[in-house]
Design a protein around this nucleic acid. Structure first.
Lengths: 310, 310
DNA sequence: CCGATTTATCCATTATTTGGCACAATCATA
DNA sequence: TATGATTGTGCCAAATAATGGATAAATCGG
């Protein structure tokens, strides 16, 4: 291979340097000489034809071109790994890294904890967790598994139903003390609703009585947030009433910081699903985590078995 | 780098071998020894952990895993190239390969010819032409430029309007001799229409009289094809009447093999657009071809300037 | 303005890669 | 069926490239 040619190895060191902003520490990390790191970068830059890093003795930063090249390099290196994964399938030992995307609030409250437990059991499997409520293109982002609440629009992805997430109307005791406790659905109209801006149709609540009658009640309020944990904080702070997933507030209910209201009525549950890129479903470590999560999540309070056709 | 590590070079030789099905010719092509090719393949297979090629002395074929790995390798190598392109921008000399996707019939009749002329002028620029009427994901397929007719659904792509493609009602003289020549739109109802199965709304023709009145006439027939050239062949064979892009039949009209009918009425024109992946628009060779095509296509009979806001 | 820290350069050493050649396997043809 | 041409593989000495420690140069904070 030519002295100035693009190589995975050079690319890899470039990526590490870009991430750490420091050559010598990368040398240590990769177990190579520090002069080698310098040369790798020089050779890569020569091959690309553009300076990628602006280096001073104190700091190494990406140039504009460098940061674009970095983004592409990341993707390329991931693809290289995934290409091997795909043909290796379940043959290989369960090592490597699983990338998982999860809705933010659920991830903070539950998935992260489960992942720690998973790593306890399988220390050799790396985990790369990305918490966001945005719909991501799994393939493009290199994500193996995604946990999503609600209806799914994605096609071409394998799906595993984890169950239905029970929702409850909750508020803090202080709030209820001040504003009164609703006893019939229509009482809600005078109350302060905390709504989610990224959930469609949050202006109306569909309450179902124990008998079966449906009550559609308007749901208004001055606070609207786009993050479940913000809603949680608002609830604790007594800012209003919210329809909350039970997993979001279960600990607060147990601790008495929140109370459920209108217990005789129920809110529609929301499906909790796991999305898997079909090509990645065969990889040993992915399957392992898949099964682990499915099993563990079923045990979270408020997640009910759905009538699923598996 | 470890002896058994995945390398661009090994990957590249693997790809070439997979494509040619032969080690020694690849050795010649890449200017390396045959034994080197053998070793590269062995090392790659060892690194991946799966046999990729089944080799006999007479033939080298991809295993199942190999062909999947091949597809990924192609993509990776393309991304590596594109990563450099992106940061190099227009700085680099116009070399390399441009990938272009084009609707099938237009590609056969016009684009290919234009591309030959382009290569005449820029011999160092390689061209990779893919003819299909399916909508392709430009980014995923690594396509730089796409030529498409009709309305566009794609977002996030830069667009360059090339003009409006004039359409005409045509049929062969024999057909018209046997079945009669329509003189008013309603005459079409008794005729045999050749329709395109991949064009929506091909069951109705919207004819506009010179005066301005619109005539919606049903358009039926026993033959439906999914390829413009098949329609063209059917027209020549006297199988019926079709609304054809002028560029599809211009030569046949000039040669007298087809005739236009209902000349006092016009069919809605269809927009002809060039789609460009924004990240690729800065690359020297892509811009060169972009401008060349835009200029040349404007000269094709039946392509009229649209009222474009550029 | 100095000192500590970090990157670049140089060069002898080490490791790896290379390709020619002989050999083995395969297929076409007589 | 025998034979020859073609093709992939294994082996080895030679060539090539990669490596890292020591040194020099540069930078920034105080």
């Amino acid at each position: 291979m030519d002295k100035s040619d693009i190589t995975f190895e050079r690319m890899r060191t470039f990526v590490r340097v870009a991430e750490r902003g420091n050559l010598s520490s990368v040398a240590g990390e990769l177990g190579i000489g520090q002069s080698t790191v310098t040369r790798h970068l020089q050779e890569l830059e020569e091959a690309v034809g553009v300076p990628l890093l602006s280096r001073t003795t104190r700091r190494v930063t990406l140039t504009d071109e460098g940061s674009r090249y970095y983004a592409n390099s990341i993707q390329i290196l991931r693809l290289v790994e995934q290409a091997s994964d795909e043909v290796r399938g379940a043959l290989g030992a369960p090592t490597g890294t699983v990338r998982i995307s999860c809705t933010a609030a659920f991830g903070v409250l539950h998935t992260s904890r489960l992942l720690f437990a998973f790593q306890e059991r399988y220390p050799d499997i790396g985990i790369d967790l990305s918490l966001t409520d945005e719909r991501v293109d799994l393939v493009r982002e290199g994500v193996d598994i995604a946990l999503r609440l609600g209806p799914l629009t994605d096609s071409s992805l394998r799906l595993r139903a984890l169950g239905l997430s029970r929702r409850l109307l909750v508020a803090s005791p202080d709030y209820l003390a001040v504003r009164g406790r609703p006893v019939v659905p229509s009482d809600l109209s005078g109350h302060e609703g905390i709504r989610m801006s990224n959930v469609a149709g949050s202006e109306t609540l569909a309450l179902q009585a124990a008998g079966g009658e449906r009550h559609m009640v308007p749901f208004a309020g001055r606070l609207r947030v786009d993050h479940g944990l913000a809603a949680r904080a608002a609830l604790v702070a007594g800012r209003g009433i919210a329809p909350a997933h039970r997993w979001l507030v279960d600990d607060l209910l147990a601790a008495g910081q929140l109370e459920t209201i209108l217990d005789d009525y129920s809110l529609p549950s929301v499906a909790l699903n796991m999305l898997i890129v079909p090509e990645r479903a065969g990889v040993a470590r992915v399957r392992l985590l898949l099964d682990f999560l499915a099993e563990q999540i079923a045990g979270i309070p408020g997640i009910e078995k759905s009538i699923s056709r598996r």
